[in-house]
Design a protein around this nucleic acid. Structure first.
Length: 219
DNA sequence: ATCCCGAGGG
DNA sequence: CCCTCTGGAT
């Protein structure tokens, strides 16, 4: 397990590497953000951003999503993966926003999670990015980085990872740290080829030390 | 535990 | 070819 000093060193390193980390999904309002985050499941932000400009031009209100045919919406988001379930969820989500939330995306995580296609991770992103609520959304990057560095255990569930992070990071730093972890995972501690050789954290990283040793044997 | 599911990188 | 991408519902 990591010591308190090691944790703060990790957070300082992230802050130096990615001082301006923020949400990279293009959006102008809570509805656009919610749709973008739903679309981003198992897809890269870059891919989502290629589709959303035209999508948000065409669909500007929840009513627009309700009125369009399912087939048409599927075509409009086809290039993103999981397009059938996402199209269905977005229509359903828009419907309940109209019926139950007076046409506005709800602010609380509890209400957000009731929307179709919105689970804990998506609710955390919308609450924190659109409404400035402190939250740590645990996605594939945050989970991988936390486990490689030894911030949590390998077998931990995503919920356990989230709880551990919330416990070990000051509340007013949750949102920034969350985005820095995303950037760290996306651009540095990548799933396929992590940059361990040039990583300022290798000396305290279980996974990093393992990988460097393996590389040494091959040389 | 499994399915959904196209795009992009290696 | 294989792996991964800001997951969620069943």
């Amino acid at each position: 397990m990591l010591t308190k000093d090691e944790l703060s060193r990790i957070r300082n390193t992230w802050a130096e590497m990615f001082p301006d980390a923020q949400c990279e999904l293009t959006h102008r309002n809570p509805l656009e953000l919610t749709v973008a985050v739903v679309l981003s499941a198992q897809a890269t932000d870059a891919l989502v951003n290629k589709v959303t400009p035209a999508l948000f031009e065409k669909y500007q209100t929840p009513e627009d999503y309700v009125q369009v045919s399912l087939e048409q919406l599927e075509q409009d988001i086809r290039s993103i993966g999981l397009f059938r379930s996402k199209a269905k969820n977005i229509k359903k989500l828009a419907q309940s926003v109209i019926e139950e939330y007076d046409g506005e995306i709800p602010r609380s995580k509890e209400d957000l999670e009731k929307l179709a296609g919105v689970g804990r991770k998506t609710a955390n992103v919308v609450a924190s990015v659109a409404f400035d609520e402190p939250a740590i959304a645990v996605d594939t990057h945050v989970e991988r980085v936390s486990k490689r560095l030894g911030i949590c255990r390998w077998k931990d569930s995503v919920l356990q990872v989230e709880k551990t992070l919330m416990k070990k990071i000051p509340k007013d730093e949750w949102s920034v740290t969350h985005h820095r972890m995303i950037f760290f995972g996306r651009y540095h501690c990548k799933a396929q080829s992590p940059k361990c050789a040039e990583c300022p954290l290798v000396d305290i990283c279980r996974e990093g030390k393992k990988r460097m040793k393996k590389q040494g044997r091959q040389d």
